[in-house]
């Protein structure tokens, strides 16, 4: 098989068409005048107008963003600690259980984790009175728990790629561990923190199953509202919402990619400068 084998090229073309045609159709039909999502009735922005008047959807979007921001932040905090433990702490009592609990959420069907954490909240409430009913707090906790596993993996792999001699040097020069972490380790793993946070944010924003279990009657997230309306049938309003989400995600990825690319370049340049100075000495 050579570089330009027609088989590979057609496989790529078919594969990417398969991945992108549904999304493109979704976008095209969000500008459809007709209420029928499958028949073209002329260009119109009317579904966007309706979307921005839908109080329920807008409210749910706010709830979702709030939960996503909180759980991503918490998950990044906990995941960084867990990643540090996995990559740097060596052995300790209970390490096997710990690493099991880190990887398990990723192979666990969501219906199980969702059911389990809901029952946990019910029992906790019976015993302690907390959490009083289910809502934003319980959803945030549930999201943090599964997102944390992904953040841990991201941080752990970054830490194990990182050259730890810098940390060693700082220690040898008498820096205290906490100082070493904040001055040396943290800046180096910062890109991983950003991608971990974004990953957690997206996972939270997107989650339906765990959320449905952890949510109370008064708190609906965006996926929950979308899901119940989609179950009733296809509506162009959802297409308009989808288009906005796709555009936002694409923009976020492009910006994040650009920032990371630039940081990487800066890091490389700094390294080169340092090496050049070393040579000059």
């Amino acid at each position: 098989m050579t570089n330009r084998s027609p088989f590979l090229i057609s496989a790529l073309a078919f594969g990417f068409a398969f991945l992108y045609v549904p999304i493109l159709l979704l976008i095209v039909f969000s500008f459809n005048e007709s209420k029928l999502v499958t028949v073209w009735g002329g260009f119109s922005f009317k579904w966007y107008g309706e979307l921005f008047q839908d109080e329920q959807l807008l409210g749910a979007a706010k709830v979702s963003l709030l939960i996503a921001a909180m759980s991503a932040t918490l998950a990044t905090l906990l995941g960084t600690m867990a990643g540090l433990i996995m990559a740097r702490f060596g052995r300790f009592k209970g390490r096997t259980l710990f690493s099991g609990m880190i990887t398990a959420p990723m192979v666990m069907p969501e219906v199980i984790t969702g059911l389990a954490i809901l029952l946990m909240f019910v029992v906790l409430e019976e015993l302690t009175g907390w959490p009083d009913g289910r809502g934003i707090t319980t959803i945030t906790i549930a999201h943090t728990t599964f997102a944390m596993a992904y953040v841990t993996i991201v941080i752990q792999s970054r830490l194990s790629q990182m050259d730890d001699s810098v940390e060693e040097a700082a220690m040898d020069l008498g820096a205290r561990p906490l100082k070493v972490f904040f001055l040396i380790t943290l800046p180096i793993i910062a890109p991983a923190l950003v991608s971990g946070w974004l990953l957690a944010f997206t996972l939270s924003l997107d989650d339906l199953v765990t959320t449905s279990f952890a949510a109370g009657p008064s708190s609906s997230t965006l996926p929950m509202v979308v899901f119940s309306s989609v179950r009733l049938g296809v509506t162009p309003k959802i297409n308009a919402l989808a288009t906005i989400l796709v555009v936002l995600a694409t923009m976020a990825i492009v910006v994040a990619g650009y920032i990371m690319h630039r940081q990487e370049q800066q890091r490389k340049r700094a390294m080169q400068r340092a090496l050049a100075e070393q040579d000059a000495m």
Binding site: I23, L25, T38, P223, V226, F227, A242, A249
Partner: peptide, 16 residues
């Protein structure tokens, strides 16, 4: 890229 856009909405796209 598709992974970063909503899973629910990608499934929904196939209904139409």
């Amino acid at each position: 890229l598709p992974f970063w856009t909503s899973f629910l909405i990608r499934v929904y796209a196939w209904i139409g």
